[in-house]
Design a protein around this nucleic acid. Structure first.
Length: 515
DNA sequence: GACTTTCGGTGTGCCGCATT
DNA sequence: AATGCGGCACACCGAAAGTC
């Protein structure tokens, strides 16, 4: 992407060499390098692009295409994911090309692309080898690093721990292993160029939970509330310890999900890591990283992340803890390419959240309502499915299995010929016995007879006369010979299956005639 | 121009219910 | 039990539009 924009920028410069072209060039430079203008980098770049976009038609005509428009959105990409030089589009282009080549149909491309993306993600997130084929390795941090503690991590530590021995409390590691995957920090020589970091919650040496800084703060706030609620209920001097115990229990429950999220988000990362001392039952480990190319970008990134975290954190937490952790980190110095472990001994930070439980109850109730609603919808869908299955089964029976109980099993020899007006009725082809019966009746009886008569034998109280019984007998014989039905059971077949079809046929003949 | 896909119209068969 | 009616589901067909 960067090469494209650089080349494009040069072309633009050669072509018109105007101030407007310089806006575009500066726009590309800003979004492809470090945050030379701090938080305002993408804002200024976006303003340049908007001005360029606005004046573009003054220099060119009929080339204000979609690609040009896409440049307006690059500032947002820069804000969310950092320098565009770290982004690759070939994967998406390859996927879209593959989709365009193998697409089906001419409509609903959006749904198809979404579905193909989901399939692609699902496939690529599957384990690509069996665990037994790998060496058994213990997950955890390793490659201890002796770098200095940054000011930001000092603040982190002070916010979470009351000890005054930060050198003993915090350990810095350059790599970690999760589910047989090694994550390299930016302190590590083979690091990548992306700016990333993550946080480890830790209760002990064997209990590592990972997530983003935002996850860490949110989880910390949640557990703090839980512990305080527990403390309020017990209302005694031991309440804090009990709350900590509950935190530890909750930590265990969230372990797997945190690890999964980290595994996905840091798959391409090179992140240093922070882990806390083990004297306390609850620890919070923070991993931070930076790029050598962009010394400031890490802190800018952290500031942005902190801002997001700040917005997502509850107001209550803000009032009880003060500034969010990420906000405090945002004021840190540049020398925090490190992995640090902090212990959270500061149990006094646990503050009460009186309405949190009520909020949780409300959310649980809403969830229950949704589940009940979905259950009702599911029942309705299942009912519809049952109806469809019954109908399908009925059709299958009509065509293939309905006649089985009436088929002759005595070995009777059926004739191959049954003539009527020089026409062999047994030569007539039909889709099923009903269709065959209708065709036979149309041959044996005239149109007027069919629309004015009823089935034999007729009844005195019925105004319509029955069809001629002799010819009707020929029709029934034709049906019996055609489908090789037993002579004894034919009466049952007639009453159970055939009669309704024939009566409907006569009625519909009248209806069709009238219409 | 051949082919595919979608859509609407039509015919047909079947079913449920009420009436005779 | 036979008859009549209304409605639904499905198959089939042709027209229209899109694609190559």
């Amino acid at each position: 992407m960067r090469k494209r924009c650089s080349l494009l920028s040069r072309i633009r410069l050669v072509v018109h060499g105007t101030g407007n072209g310089l806006k575009f060039i500066r726009f590309c430079d800003l979004l492809h390098g470090p945050r030379t203008l701090g938080d305002a980098t993408e804002i200024i770049a976006n303003e340049l692009m908007i001005n360029y976009y606005r004046d573009h038609q003054s220099f060119y005509t009929s080339i204000q295409n979609f690609v040009l428009h896409l440049h307006v959105h690059y500032a947002n990409q820069y804000r969310l994911h950092g320098s565009l030089s770290n982004l690759g589009t070939f994967g998406q282009e390859s996927l879209l090309g593959h989709f365009a080549k193998n697409r089906h149909g001419t409509h609903h491309f959006g749904e198809l692309i979404t579905n193909n993306y989901n399939v692609d993600f699902t496939i690529h997130n599957q384990p690509n080898s069996h665990s037994s084929s790998r060496n058994i390795e213990i997950d955890g941090i390793f490659d201890l690093h002796d770098s200095s503690i940054s000011r930001a991590l000092h603040e982190y530590h002070n916010a979470l721990c009351i000890c005054d021995k930060i050198d003993q409390c915090i350990s810095i590691y350059r790599r970690c292993r999760l589910k047989h995957t090694i994550y390299h920090s930016l302190l590590y020589r083979r690091r990548g160029s992306s700016v990333s970091y993550f946080v480890q919650y830790s209760k002990g040496h064997d209990d590592n939970l990972f997530g983003s800084l935002e996850d860490c703060n949110s989880e910390y706030a949640r557990l703090t509330r839980l512990s305080q609620d527990q403390a309020d209920d017990q209302n005694d001097d031991d309440s804090i310890q009990d709350a900590i115990n509950m935190i530890n229990s909750s930590m265990k429950n969230i372990r797997s999900s945190k690890i999964d999220r980290t595994r996905l988000s840091s798959s391409t990362s090179s992140s240093p890591r922070i882990s806390t001392c083990a004297q306390t039952p609850e620890k919070i480990d923070v991993e931070v990283s930076d790029s050598d190319d962009e010394e400031n970008s890490f802190f800018d990134c952290r500031k942005r992340t902190k801002k997001t975290l700040f917005e997502s954190s509850s107001k209550k937490r803000r009032s009880t803890i003060g500034k969010p952790l990420t906000q405090r980190v945002s004021t840190a110095s540049n020398d925090e390419n490190s992995t640090i472990t902090m212990s959270n001994k500061n149990k006094s930070n646990i503050q009460s959240e009186s309405n949190v439980l009520q909020d949780i109850d409300n959310r649980v109730n809403q969830l229950n309502e949704k589940l009940i609603s979905n259950s009702s919808k599911f029942d309705q869908l299942m009912q519809k499915l049952y109806v469809k299955i019954d109908r399908l089964t009925s059709n299958i029976n009509v065509h293939k299995h309905a006649l089985e109980p009436y088929v002759d099993k005595t070995g009777e020899t059926f004739p191959d010929v049954l003539m009527f007006n020089n026409y062999n009725l047994l030569d007539l082809m039909a889709t099923d016995y009903g269709n065959y019966a209708r065709k036979i009746l149309r041959i044996v009886f005239s149109q007027d007879e069919l629309k004015s008569s009823i089935l034999p034998p007729g009844k005195p109280h019925l105004r319509r006369q029955p069809l001629d019984q002799d010819r009707f007998k020929i029709c029934m014989d034709a049906i019996r010979y055609k489908f090789k039905l037993d002579a004894v059971n034919f009466g049952l077949f007639y009453r159970a299956l055939l009669r309704r079809k024939l009566t409907d046929f006569l009625i519909e003949e009248r209806r069709r005639q009238s219409t």
